[in-house]
Design a protein around this nucleic acid. Structure first.
Length: 420
RNA sequence: GCGAGCGUAGCCAAGUGGUUAAGGCAGUGGAUUGUGGUUCCACCAUUCGUGGGUUCGAUUCCCAUCGUUCGCCCCA
């Protein structure tokens, strides 16, 4: 048997309702803030991600799906959305049109060990706001994220926020941190020792007891922030308070992608396992310039769809569509008329499920009942002969014979009855 | 990339080194050849993820492999 590749998953009809709920909610909220959808390619030149995300990051170093195509081009399946959107912003000179408010959704690919809430092909909805350095831009972006999460019914979420400063601030801090930690090298846990040169900021977040103690007295990133960066951060926090968005400052919060500057944030759920982050993002004022565009200030985030679905599954049954009518028919003439009637009702705006089995009426009713339909439409030889149809409301059992033409003429009445 | 657990039907599962692998849900057919939600009956795994080994004999023990779950790492 051919099985789906490791870390990929089929989203089956029984679950697709969750996905549609999330997508629809996000779309509405984006639209209200006048964000436009952008659709960019799923694969790009490998160098885009190397330059954008950073050569030293885990994502680029060991998680990308990279291959050569038949034309010998080095290609990578996108591991995240921002680099592609920024590339498009530059290629299409969108910067010439002022501030760009964009959103996207779709699959991303990372070669990781799968576990709950982590797959190799996973899906994100993301926002990118390009062309503004205002703290209000940061807060608008964050507010849209919290609105979406709230609108789909999630609570018990926590917003962690930090400022990672400008690239050069962070570089200076990084050096100071390494200088501080170096003497303790032997006392650090194995993971942290490995991170010392690669990603020292993450050491502050280590779960190891001893490492925690050492990290207590380490220099703090805030001390290295420029005055303007501090001011920006303070304003962001003030604006969040104005919007009544609760947050927690987390000085250890750093993001794994090199392009972040100033504001960095994560939204986590306590109801997930180790993969608790449902939304992550931040400001990336250097990226557009880095990739060959004009210096442009920007902020963005991405939501992990699979993780949201996991949370929703705990909260509610999968939203499924129930038909208004279930059409029961038996006999050649009746079945032909039934198909025509079903189509006409559908065109009039009703959802109609057509029983194709040709089995006994009893069986068809049983299936009709299970479909959750409000009513059955029954067509047998007798009805076909007279061009009528029996309308049976399943809740009450009440049944009436109606001319087919009349049924189609009473759509308003039916819609009222179905509360459509 | 590292550590640990798991893998019996579409789903949930019981089971044992020995001729025929419980049960439930779902599905299909029938009781009821024109009327559902209840009930009853029948059917539904030559096979226990896959490959190899040990054994007279393995779904059961061992190894490998694939998948999955949890944690580390990383991240959405």
């Amino acid at each position: 048997m051919i099985q789906a590749l490791r870390g990929t998953r089929d989203i089956l009809p029984e679950d697709v309702g969750y996905w549609q709920l999330i997508e629809q909610t996000a779309r509405e909220i984006f639209t209200r803030a006048v964000y436009s959808e952008i659709r960019v390619p799923i694969f790009e030149q490998t160098s885009l991600f190397e330059r954008g995300i950073g050569e030293a990051t885990d994502i680029v170093g060991k998680e990308m799906y990279t291959f050569k195509d038949r034309g010998d081009r080095l290609i990578t399946l996108r591991p995240e959305g921002t680099a592609g959107v920024v590339r498009s912003y530059i290629s299409n000179k969108l910067h010439a049109q002022g501030v760009q408010r964009l959103w996207y959704s779709g699959p991303m690919f990372r070669y990781e060990r799968p576990q709950a809430g982590r797959q190799r092909q996973f899906h994100q909805i993301g926002l990118e706001l390009l062309g503004s350095g205002s703290p209000r831009a940061d807060v608008e972006a964050i507010a849209i994220a919290t609105d979406i999460l709230q609108a789909i019914g999630l609570s018990n979420l926590q917003l962690d926020i930090n400022s990672v400063g400008r690239g050069e601030d962070r570089q200076k801090y990084r050096e100071a941190l390494i200088a501080y930690l170096e003497p303790y090298k032997e006392e650090l846990d194995q993971d942290s020792r490995d991170r010392l040169t690669r990603n020292p900021l993450r050491i502050l977040d280590s779960k190891d007891q001893k490492t925690q103690e050492i990290a207590q007295d380490a220099p703090q990133l805030v001390e290295y922030l420029s005055d303007s960066s501090k001011k920006h951060f303070d304003t962001v926090l003030q604006l969040l308070t104005d919007l009544d968005i609760k947050y927690q400052i987390n000085h250890c919060l750093v993001r794994g992608l090199d392009y972040y500057t100033h504001t960095a944030f994560e939204i986590q759920s306590a109801d997930l396992g180790a993969q608790a982050t449902v939304c992550g993002g931040g400001r990336y004022d250097g990226l557009v310039g880095e990739l060959g565009g004009p210096e442009t200030q920007a902020i963005g985030w991405a939501i992990g769809m699979e993780r949201l679905v996991l949370l929703l599954q705990k909260l509610q049954e999968s939203p499924t569509a129930k038909p208004d009518f279930y059409l029961v028919s038996r006999g050649a003439m009746a079945e032909a008329q039934g198909l025509v009637l079903a189509q006409k009702l559908r065109n009039a705006g009703f959802t109609v499920e057509l029983d194709l089995s040709g089995s006994a009426f009893g069986k068809q009713f049983k299936r009709g009942d299970r479909s959750g339909a409000a009513a059955c439409l029954v067509l047998g030889d007798a009805e076909a002969e007279k061009q009528t149809v029996n309308l049976k409301w399943l809740a009450s059992g009440e049944q009436q014979a109606i001319a087919q033409s009349e049924l189609l003429a009473m759509t308003e009445e039916l819609k009222t009855k179905l509360s459509l």
